[in-house]
Design a protein around this nucleic acid. Structure first.
Length: 454
RNA sequence: GUCCCGUUCGUCUAGCCCGGUCUAGGACACCUGGUUUUCAUCCAGGCAACAGGGGUUCGAAUCCCCUACGGGAUGCCA
């Protein structure tokens, strides 16, 4: 039992939930940190919901986040099959063990697990009925995150449904035993279930794995945990919205875990090296997309312009900003200006559209604000000849020419800037102005300004 | 209802195990100022928290108890 074996056991539902992703990530990180094995096991017993499409979403989500698995679908392994739907023979065998030990009975066509202890009946306020309960000895859960937790199971529970399908608690334990799982890292919502699981491990005469129940992710606002209908709950949406997988992964890692110092932005090797149980918090954490975005922006800002361009190009194309065959050099020179200013890839298209299309609209609010100081048309008309006269249309020469002109008028050069930007882009903000003119090019700039003056 | 888990700035968190160095640190957000051009940049500064009450102790964010609040479980869902 020297090597760590952890598993992520999702039920493919057609979504890859952020909470699941975080559970997967913690397992994966622990495996990589310890040099152990990360196993992907598919809990696909519910045939109605488990389609190929659902599985695909899951596997793609895992890959997108950079979580590779050592055993499981597509890669196989010595402890397979890795789909619960294919493990019936194993479940039959283990069910027999329980039967032989006298720990089961049938009722209403289902097979129940029998707790040991004195029986009594009691009115159950949740079930609104008189039920049979058992005074079972409390089970001890040795949880690495929470410490020693004691909980007594008080009712027998179903392990095989009347349709013959085994239920989660049973298969989960059997699979963990047969797959040699050493550490179970899962959401705190399973902590109460764990007493059932430990009862089963005990009944099989097997030492339970180490448990680590990690805090849940609460929805951004309002009560309760993140559910798939909440904004930001689905991993596949982040990919679509142009979020960086590295940023999402980094952010999620920080939800419920921290390296015990002030590091936040970390590359994956660093996280793997630092990740361990003592850094996991007990309290639930609330999802905060602003913080995720901030991290995402940081990653975006520091990447090489080539990578940035490679990422942005398809996004700009699908937003209708550029053509399929748009000039790479021009795109890159535009993006070079925008990379340090734009926040995310998702709003990049609107941020830089005017570089590629000259039918941009003028933001009237911005225009009104500028007009308070001076009529933008007059300002533009005034410097139009200056810009026409600039031989080398680069930022330095533009600066020099405009300054010279401003001086001759007894004005400051920046008096012209807001109007210039407004006329050229329709906006009030954007990349540095003079480099922007240079990238746009003299012909384009003059054309736009003439049109603006009317 | 019952059981289990939790509770430090608005949010993520450090500190808690091994009480004094905490007038509680960082980050995101927000606010202000600066960068004598825009800002969705950059820099500087600011706002802001130990849930409440009892103990224990010379001393408690740190240990114990109670209450409140939050979360979860209580499915022939996983």
């Amino acid at each position: 039992m020297s090597q760590v074996r952890v598993r992520f056991a999702p039920s493919p539902t057609g979504f890859f939930h952020i909470g699941s992703a975080r559970t997967a990530l913690f397992n994966w990180l622990y495996a990589r940190h310890t040099g152990g094995k990360f196993i992907l096991r598919i809990e696909d017993t519910d045939k109605a919901r488990n389609t190929d499409e659902s599985l695909r979403v899951l596997l793609e989500g895992m890959s997108w986040m950079g979580m590779d698995w050592d055993e499981g679908p597509e890669v196989g392994g010595d402890y397979g099959p890795y789909f619960q739907s294919q493990r019936q023979a194993i479940y039959d065998e283990y069910l027999q063990k329980l039967k032989d030990a006298g720990r089961t009975y049938e009722k209403d066509g289902a097979i129940w697990f029998k707790l040991e202890g004195e029986r009594y009946t009691e009115y159950d306020d949740f079930k609104k009925a008189e039920v049979e309960k058992v005074k079972a000895a409390p089970v001890v859960i040795d949880d690495t995150v929470r410490g020693r937790v004691e909980r007594a199971e008080e009712m027998d529970f179903v392990i095989v449904r009347k349709d013959g399908n085994p239920v989660f608690h049973f298969v989960n334990v059997v699979d963990d035993i047969t797959m040699g799982i050493t550490h179970v890292i899962r959401g705190e919502d399973h902590l109460s279930n764990t007493s059932k699981h430990v009862e089963l491990f005990n009944a099989f005469g097997v030492k339970a794995p180490v448990f680590a129940h990690i805090p849940l992710i609460l929805k951004e606002s309002g009560p309760g945990k993140m559910s798939k209908r909440d904004k930001g709950a689905l991993i596949e949406e982040y990919a679509q919205r142009g979020f960086l997988a590295t940023a999402v992964r980094n952010y999620i890692a920080l939800l419920g875990w921290n390296p015990k110092d002030e590091r936040e932005k970390m590359d994956i090797d660093e996280i793997i090296e630092l990740f361990d149980f003592p850094g996991i918090n007990k309290g639930n954490s609330r999802f905060d997309e602003k913080k995720l975005s901030a991290l995402n922006t940081e990653y975006l800002r520091e990447m090489p312009i080539e990578t940035y361009t490679w990422l942005a190009r398809p996004i700009l194309h699908s937003a209708g900003v550029i053509e399929e065959d748009a000039d790479e050099d021009y795109i890159q020179s535009v993006l070079k200006l925008c990379q340090g200013k734009a926040r995310g890839l998702d709003d990049l298209a609107d941020f830089c559209r005017y570089f590629f299309q000259d039918d941009y609209t003028l933001d009237e609010k911005v225009g009104a604000k500028i007009a308070k100081k001076a009529d933008p048309k007059e300002l533009i008309a005034e410097i139009l000849p200056v810009l026409e006269g600039v031989a080398d249309f680069d930022a330095d020469h533009l600066q020099a020419s405009l300054e010279a002109h401003a001086e001759s008028k007894g004005a400051k050069v920046f008096a012209y800037f807001p109007a210039l930007r407004y006329a050229l882009s329709g906006q009030g903000g954007g990349p540095d102005l003079l480099p922007m003119l240079a990238v746009l090019g003299q012909e384009q700039v003059l054309g736009r300004l003439k049109r603006f003056v009317g």
